Amino acid sequence: MCHILSGDLKKYKRYSGKSSIYLLITQQGLWAIFVYRINNKIFNSRTPKWLKNIFLGVGLLFHKFIEIITGISLPYSAQIGNDFYIGHFGGIIINSKAIIGNNCNISQGVTIGVSGRGPKRGVPRIGNNVYIGANAVIVGDIFIGDNVVIGANSLVIESVPNNCTMLGVPATKVSDNNSEFYI
């Protein structure tokens, strides 16, 4: 648990060059990630159900507090990999069934949610090393490959292959540039 939390903090430190104390006081995205990590650990633990429900009840209060003051909703049942980074706070909604890989960055206004009808209804699965730009929306039973860049204000409703940049409404592949310089 501490290893995962320290990975998130180290990523914030790499980007900002600021001290851990400064980041813990000032970075709303980091607050949301920490509350998510603690609640997710409880959710996935083998604690007896009655005790887990008490802990999650308290954790939900912290989650709602963070959601209200930061505008970031990271439900404890979502699966978010190591070294997660939220570039700016506000308007970030992640579905409780979403899966996000390791070393991903998201910007303000991002929605990762449920959409579609019939067999296409579902929640996205996002690979490793993915950068998601401001106000992007990723919805439906789709998979976003590794090393992908989703441009700002894009609407992604179809699966995306590895190592490319997507842009537009609906998002289309605009280049083979990967996320190497964004992450």
Rank of each mutant, 00 (worst) to 15 (best):
T172A: 02
V130F: 11
D141I: 07
R117M: 14
I132M: 13
P124K: 03
A152W: 00
G145R: 08
R125C: 12
P119W: 13
V137M: 13
N135M: 02
N128I: 12
A171D: 01
N135Q: 10
D141W: 11
P119G: 05
V137S: 12
I112T: 01
N162S: 05
K120M: 07
V149M: 08
T165I: 01
T111W: 04
Y131W: 15
V156D: 07
V130D: 12
G168Q: 12
S115L: 06
V139D: 00
V110Q: 04
K120L: 13
I138G: 08
I138Q: 06
A152M: 03
P119R: 06
N135H: 12
G168C: 11
F181S: 07
R121F: 08
A136T: 02
A171C: 09
D146Y: 15
E158R: 13
N162T: 01
C164W: 01
G127C: 11
S159E: 09
S115K: 14
N178S: 13
V139W: 01
F143H: 09
S175P: 06
F143I: 15
E180W: 02
V148Y: 13
I112K: 05
V123Y: 12
F143A: 06
V123W: 13
V139A: 15
Y131C: 00
I157Y: 07
V156F: 00
D146E: 15
I112R: 03
V110A: 01
N163P: 07
S159G: 08
G140Q: 10
M166F: 03
T172E: 12
G122D: 04
V174I: 08
P170N: 08
N135I: 02
V137A: 11
I144A: 01
N163R: 11
V139F: 04
G122R: 14
S179Q: 10
N153H: 13
G133A: 05
I132Y: 10
P161L: 01
N147K: 07
N162Q: 05
G151I: 05
K173A: 00
Y131M: 06
G168P: 08
R121Y: 09
I157M: 08
I132A: 09
N153V: 00
Y182I: 02
D176H: 10
V148R: 12
P170M: 09
S175G: 01
S179W: 01
P170E: 13
I126K: 14
